[in-house]
Simulated scan of single mutants.
Amino acid sequence: MNPPLYIPFLLLFGFTQAQNALYNSGNIRIHPNGNLGFHTNLINDTAFDQNDGLAGFYGNATLQVEGSISPIFNDAEFMVSNDIFLQNSVNVQNNVNFVEGNVLSPLNDQTINLNFTSNGFFTGENDANKVTGFAAITDRQFFSFPVGDENQLRPLMLDSQSDTPLAFCAYFFENPSNPISIAESYNVEEKVRDIGTVNNKEFWIVQSDVPATVTVSWNQRSALGAIPNTTLDAIILVGWSKQSNQWVAIGNSAQSGDENQGFLTSQTFVPSDYEAITFGTVPLPTDTFAVNNPTLGNYFLSPNGDGTNDFLVIEGMSESPNNALRIFNRFGQKVFEKINYVDEFSGFTNSGSFLLNKDIGLPEGIYYYLATLDDLNLEYQGFIFLDR
């Protein structure tokens, strides 16, 4: 795409000017190699889709795009130092050039967004120039959403299993328990037991009906390092489940960095099953639950058929015949569950998404367990090292 093009006047063909805005009621078209510059608000109430050139938005004052019908541009350029606010979606077929200022949209209305269609892409994004609100894609499989808040670019990469007809994403540098931009709230204390802490600094909303992985990063202001005893391996992706109305573990397929700065790629999940996603941690021995509930001990398991440590035998479980045992991997995903446990676990899963590999056995590594002794009204946790 050519360098930023500042168009000092507007071609007044097929539209009229009214009250500091350009009202399009028809007969506007940007021809190949043509350029149309908007230096005032745009109100679009008719089809504006036969465009092959560049639509640019320029100026020092805040601009708005309004109307009942969303325009479709081939190329778009934003150079508005005090930001452009979308009250009507804008669709782009080719390149979006972020030159100066943010593209804002209502954070409480996911239907208004900057939409990148099947071949759309962007250039020039950074902390000062990005989408502060909802970005969307149509008919795409892989895309990195150039979203953030007023001060930082906080992108989310979506890698879907197939083309998604529609997906959208926004970033919130707000406490999920008490966000200021939306009416909904996602209490970080409402979580399943296999989550230690849910981050209260930021979250993303991403929606798509196609199974996908997401890649997101954390930095100093994410404040994950402030969570006691947080390590890289303890950081997981969590989501607010629409079904259970609580935070549940989504888990990771890859991660890198440390507790202060890094990124992770999630396990495959359906984004539309969750209202919001953010970072969480797996429970550690110093978490509140572990402090208030003693451990039965840590165990070594080597299910190789030699008669030694082939099965998980937890001392004390026999004192409470009405018990339950749950085992989780380091991502907080449940891999085994048994009511009235009697020394059955030998390294094979019977729970969750790992059932497809139940005949292979769980991979070597560290797992942790939660033991509930109902007869004694006690709960315990500890660690298991599985050796293959």
Rank of each mutant, 00 (worst) to 15 (best):
I314M: 06
N119L: 05
N298I: 04
L301V: 10
P155Q: 15
L63D: 12
P32R: 15
Y369I: 09
G14W: 02
I236D: 08
I112E: 05
T117I: 05
K358E: 11
E100C: 06
M157F: 12
I137L: 01
T164W: 01
Q207R: 11
A234W: 05
N41M: 02
N91K: 13
D127F: 04
A249L: 03
D127T: 08
V282E: 00
W218D: 06
N187V: 07
E259M: 08
V238M: 04
N91L: 10
N260F: 10
S89P: 02
I250L: 07
S162N: 10
A21N: 10
I227D: 00
Y23I: 14
W218L: 03
E77G: 04
N44E: 12
N51Q: 08
W218N: 07
E189K: 13
E125S: 14
F78D: 11
E190W: 07
R330E: 01
G382H: 09
V103A: 06
A167P: 01
F279H: 08
W204I: 07
P271M: 12
Q19T: 15
H39N: 13
A167C: 03
L325H: 04
N151A: 06
A47R: 10
I360C: 00
G347W: 15
S70V: 03
N2Y: 11
T281Y: 09
I72A: 02
N113Q: 12
R140W: 02
P303H: 15
L158G: 01
N329I: 07
H31N: 12
N229G: 02
I180P: 00
H31D: 12
R221E: 08
T111C: 00
L224Y: 07
